[in-house]
Simulated assay, not measured.
Amino acid sequence: MTSSIDSLDTPVAVVDVSRMQRNIQRMQNQANRQGVRLRPHVKTTKCEQVVAAQVKAGAQGITVSTLKEAQAFFAQGITDILYAVAMAPTKLNQALALRRAGCSLTIVTDSVAGARAITDFCRTHGERFEVFIEIDSDHHRSGVRSDDPVLIEIARILHEGGAVLKGVMTHAGESYKLNTLEALQEIAEIERSECGMAAEAIRSAGLPCQEVSVGSTPTALSAVHLDGVTELRAGVYVFFDLVMHNVGVCQLDELALSVLTTVIGHQPEKGWIITDSGWMAMSRDRGTQSQQCDFGYGLVCDTEGKLIDGLQLRSANQEHGVASFEEGQQVEIEQQFPIGTRLRILPNHACATGAQYQAYEALDENGEISLWPRLNGW
């Protein structure tokens, strides 16, 4: 444990623990109100301490984006794990090892070829993988449509081929492009209804479909009701970020992740404050660029986390960040932000920024710092 934020080398990822805890409880409260399980997506943080806080608040099981995450969190005692990426046949041996070790791992497919690869593997190895079929509820990325006949074909292959057809799942990623409560409520209802219709189509074909799993942070927080849904999945809510702020599901003072940086130079004639937080520290993600407010590479705060009006990290090279004020603001940057000044940058995308680091510096309400390691790689 380090005494204070002032003693940290920069750049470094800082987690405001109090904000994080409030964010965790907010999502858990929503799941409780809706009468569904919360299965948080841990790809945002990949951190044992964060996941432990989510489980303590009431989460039931976790969602992962890599089998390495599944292995790590299973080793830490979490057994109920959904690997929410379409299963590549070459990874079935990894999944088998987890199940044979006692992990209740659920896998995902969205194709006939994927279903056949899973069932062929099941027969060869005497295993009954539990499988979700991914549903395309909003034409965002992957999945099968609820009214596509191939849905029933996939379901039948899984059920009759030796796997356990556990249910259907979806992710309304298009919600990230919205910014009003009405639009978010509408897409949350589309997500719920499309996944529910897929489940009903499977059941009407005489096949089992026990679970209906939905979720993204915007839809999870905006859903009016979740009738027919059994579990809710969301990830970035634990930290939030500037993209989520633009979407409209959080305030700036709810963002729990920032990058602590140091002023290393100036270009006074250009109004530039040079920092050691380049894109290697912030990530290349410019997710707010296509939204109504472009925040560059991040908004700048003081070391207490208070926003500095008009100051953004507007550009970045690999190890250099360039912060400047809005046009028209007259600031003596060398006097107000001398070399050595510490600042904190709120990121566009918490998942991408977190991925730049091996650990978080967890800042508690007393100002004390603890090191929280995170998992990287595949």
Score class of each variant (00 low, 15 high):
S3P: 09
S3H: 15
S4F: 08
S4H: 14
I5K: 01
D6R: 11
D6A: 15
S7P: 14
L8H: 01
L8K: 00
D9H: 14
T10I: 10
V12F: 12
A13T: 05
D16T: 14
S18A: 15
R19Q: 04
R19S: 03
M20S: 03
Q21D: 08
R22D: 10
R22P: 06
I24T: 02
I24F: 06
Q25F: 13
Q25I: 11
Q25A: 08
M27C: 07
Q28H: 15
Q28V: 11
Q28W: 13
N29E: 12
A31I: 13
N32H: 12
N32E: 08
R33E: 15
R33K: 15
R33C: 15
V36H: 07
V36W: 03
V36I: 04
V36D: 04
R37W: 14
L38Q: 07
R39L: 13
P40E: 10
V42G: 04
V42M: 05
T44E: 01
T44P: 03
T45Y: 11
K46S: 02
K46V: 04
E48H: 13
Q49Y: 07
Q49D: 08
V50C: 00
Q54F: 03
V55A: 06
K56D: 09
K56M: 12
K56C: 11
K56E: 10
K56F: 11
A57Q: 01
A59L: 02
A59W: 06
T66E: 02
K68F: 05
E69Q: 09
E69W: 03
Q71H: 10
A72R: 08
F73W: 06
Q76I: 10
G77W: 05
G77L: 09
G77K: 06
I78C: 03
I78K: 02
I81M: 06
I81W: 01
Y83R: 08
A86N: 13
A88L: 12
A88Y: 09
L92M: 11
L92Y: 07
Q94M: 10
L96I: 04
L96M: 12
A97C: 09
L98Q: 05
L98P: 00
L98V: 05
A101P: 01
G102V: 14
G102A: 07
C103T: 03
S104V: 14
L105D: 02
